[in-house]
Amino acid sequence: MHDFNYHRPTKAADAQKLIKKHKDGALMSGGMTLVPTMKQRLAAPSDIIDLTGLGNSGVKVLKTKVTVHAGTTHAEVATDKDLKKAIPSLCALAGGIGDPHVRNCGTIGGSIANNDPAADYPAALVALDATVVTSKRKLSADKFFKGMFETALSRDEIVMAVEFPIPDKSGYAKFPNPASRYAMVGVYVADHGKGNVRVAVTGAGAGVFRQKAMEKALSADFSANAVSGIATKADDLNEDIHASAEYRAHLVGVMAKRAVAGAK
């Protein structure tokens, strides 16, 4: 790992000043992706601005929405008692990321800012129609995620929180890579009521995407049977040593069914 200057500001405004000043610097939250990336010398920032000093963590459940602060770890999301009642699938998703040690450090803000194409959270944000609150603005999950490792964030913009509307029902199912636990394919379904169902797929493509044919079918009938026979095109899907594009396309259907069947 190349050396860098380490900063641990305690105020968001100071963090923003630091990242503005250090053009080759990087923001770090839990560091569960960034530190391994630096160790492999795939990243060599001049400065690390560690956001854990901000103390920006915690989950707040209101009547119709949930706010998860950006620095909340996966372990905290997985075990939050109020959140378990409001959006149980979100707790289950967080409890399935990496391993216990990674979940003790990795954060929701870091995960979505990194936007790994096989990360779990992007599927949750898109299916739950979440709003990302940054140091500069609010934007919908649909607009936030751009493509492989890309988001709408500007270089000096910091994710502060994610707001989730509470759905009637939601579920998440993933086929994890047995070594990394990243999603080979993960499908998040959310029934928001009044015929508004959203289906988001992670791991299969260059980034999270919505499966609109499934959304339409589930809007009419929210049951596992409703997605039977709805194919996902393999054309643009990922292909690697773990799975072919066709296999991933098939898994989208299987995971969607499981997600609907397990929805609470």
Binding site: Y6, G31, M32, V35, P36, I48, D50, A75, D99, P100, H101, V102, N104, C105, A179, S180
Partner: peptide, 21 residues
Amino acid sequence: SQCGACVVHVDGKAVKACTAL
């Protein structure tokens, strides 16, 4: 950060010391 031979507790939480600064 995969094998866990480096696990220690930091403020009571189990973390991988090879991935913590």
